[in-house]
Simulated scan of single mutants.
Amino acid sequence: MAFDFPEQFRYADSHEYAHADGELVRVGLSAFAVDQLGDIVFVDLPDVGAVLNRGNGFGSVESVKAVEDMYAPISGEVVQRNEAVLASPEELQNDPHGEGWLLVIRPSDPTQLAELMDASTYATKVAAS
């Protein structure tokens, strides 16, 4: 199956994406990760004000198949979380790169974005798995 990975996003090995929007960064799960999970039934996200450290877990997503931890692609403070996804986890499945975003964070080190994979590198990684 072919996936569309937005060119302006950066991707972590653990399949989270980070999208810079001014001083803030929107974080979510890639379409590939969402597809692998299947029917999503529950999403757990940190509260606004939580501090995330790159590579550390920040929540989980539960599907009918499995429960998977999600990992922060960059470090920063949570300034917003997607309450719509918490109320209706299927939003994550329907539009993972759009309305299915998870968090907005204020990065503590914006240079970490450059260390993530670009869309073509991530697409190559996914195709090989």
Rank of each mutant, 00 (worst) to 15 (best):
A66W: 15
V67R: 02
E68F: 00
M70T: 00
M70I: 11
Y71A: 03
A72G: 14
A72H: 13
A72I: 05
P73W: 07
P73K: 06
I74L: 05
S75F: 13
S75D: 06
S75M: 07
S75R: 02
G76C: 04
E77P: 06
E77I: 00
V78E: 11
V78L: 04
R81A: 14
E83T: 10
E83K: 05
A84P: 09
V85I: 01
V85Q: 03
V85N: 01
L86I: 12
L86E: 10
L86Q: 09
L86D: 08
A87P: 13
A87M: 13
S88H: 13
E90I: 07
E91Y: 02
N94Q: 07
D95M: 06
H97E: 06
E99N: 06
E99C: 09
G100R: 10
W101A: 11
L102S: 01
L102E: 01
L102M: 00
V104K: 02
R106N: 10
P107Y: 15
S108D: 08
S108Q: 08
D109R: 14
P110K: 00
T111H: 00
T111I: 09
Q112N: 15
Q112R: 09
L113Y: 01
L113G: 14
A114Q: 15
E115A: 13
E115W: 10
E115G: 01
E115K: 10
L116M: 11
L116P: 02
M117R: 11
